[in-house]
Design a protein around this nucleic acid. Structure first.
Length: 335
DNA sequence: AAACCCATCAACCGCCGAGCT
DNA sequence: CAGCTCGGCGGTTGATGGGTT
């Protein structure tokens, strides 16, 4: 390296160090905002670097632009939480455009790319936590399971909870009877709404119920889910003429899902066993049956023996791409 | 009451492309 | 055409506050 070039580099480094010292970072003060607003009023949203070169602020041009775009622009919904609809739009558009936050934000009035990005990354973190389970399910601690349960609770689709049911009644049942966990904090793969068991099934599967064995779908073979009533030829002595007691359709990503609430009386009668045992047995296949093939493939690929589905293995193998489209429930405080 | 966990928000950083010199 | 500056974008981080244990 020749002497002149080295000297130039040293001078540049020095200049950068001086700039670094002069540059203010961190939270913006009201006075700074005011200066910035005045500048934008005068010159428009451009010439960001000139703000510092004129000695108006000791902020970088980038910092000024960011502050203006994210906080000072008129009509911003500052301090207003994203609505369920807005979140849904973000999810849909992210699926369509990828991580093009600036583009996505143009579809949401009053929202910035930073807002959209934050919402998405919060969601990703939450979903990642749902799937972050210990290698051995038996080694998972109670508090970890509680966290998973809570996270899964948070990730349940808003639309999945029918309006006709008191939302306070949404609780998770304890799968392990010897653990006296509080109902709202126990294992995640069983869901009880208003004392009724909920199953979520892809609509597609319901449209071809013959493709399922009774065990896979745990629908009584006599029940016609399309007509939402027992088949004509169903034996009249069936102990569960009114089931399921409620059905609700909702979208899970591109997948049309149907949520079915089962009357506990039906479960008692149908399973021919004690209620608690039956809940364990029946609730485990809550994972939509269409995922079972994916799970089986994964297991086969790993050369594992197909273990029975357990609450924790449900979490371990839950297909993450499906979770990309789950809307969070509002917190109980918002109910 | 303290420690911990988590969600949210604001801001910074690095990279890249466009435009200018 | 190369080099530079600026603005825009996406990723990441740090601060903070609320809820839970």
């Amino acid at each position: 390296m020749d002497g002149r070039k080295a000297r130039r580099l040293t001078m540049k480094r020095d200049e950068e160090m001086i700039k670094e010292e002069e540059t203010k970072k961190g939270p913006w003060k009201a006075e700074e905002d005011e200066v910035l607003i005045n500048h934008v009023k005068k010159y428009g949203p451009r010439g960001w670097s000139s703000i510092r070169s004129k000695g108006l602020l000791q902020r970088t041009g980038k910092s000024c632009r960011l502050r203006c775009v994210n906080k000072l622009r008129p009509n911003l919904k500052n301090g207003v939480k994203f609505s369920a609809e807005e979140k849904r739009i973000v999810i849909d558009l992210q699926a369509q455009f990828g991580n093009k936050w600036a583009k996505i934000s143009t579809y949401l009035a009053g929202r910035t790319d930073n807002d959209v990005k934050n919402v998405w990354s919060s969601r990703q973190k939450r979903l990642a936590r749902i799937l972050r389970t210990p290698a051995s399910s038996s080694s998972s601690t109670r508090s970890q399971r509680n966290n998973h349960a809570r996270a899964f609770h948070d990730a349940l689709p808003l639309e999945a909870v029918p309006d006709v049911l008191p939302l306070e009644a949404l609780k998770f049942s304890s799968l392990s009877e010897d653990e006296s966990l509080p109902k709202s904090q126990s294992c995640l793969s069983s869901c009880i709404v208003n004392s009724q068991t909920v199953q979520m099934v892809p609509l597609q599967e319901l449209l071809r119920p013959k493709s399922l064995t009774h065990d896979q779908s745990f629908l009584p073979p006599e029940f016609d889910l399309i007509e939402k009533k027992p088949c004509i030829e169903a034996p009249s002595q069936l102990p569960f003429p009114q089931i399921p007691s409620f059905q609700s359709e909702f979208l899970l990503g591109n997948q049309e899902m149907v949520m079915i609430l089962w009357d506990p009386n039906y479960l008692e009668a149908f399973g021919n066993s004690s209620s608690s045992e039956l809940l364990v047995n029946v609730q485990l296949p809550m994972m939509p049956t269409c995922f079972e093939s994916e799970r089986s493939t994964q297991i086969a690929g790993r050369g594992e023996v197909g273990n029975p589905v357990t609450p924790d293995s449900f979490v371990d193998d839950f297909p993450i791409h499906i979770l990309d489209h789950i809307e969070p429930l509002p917190s109980p405080l918002d109910w």
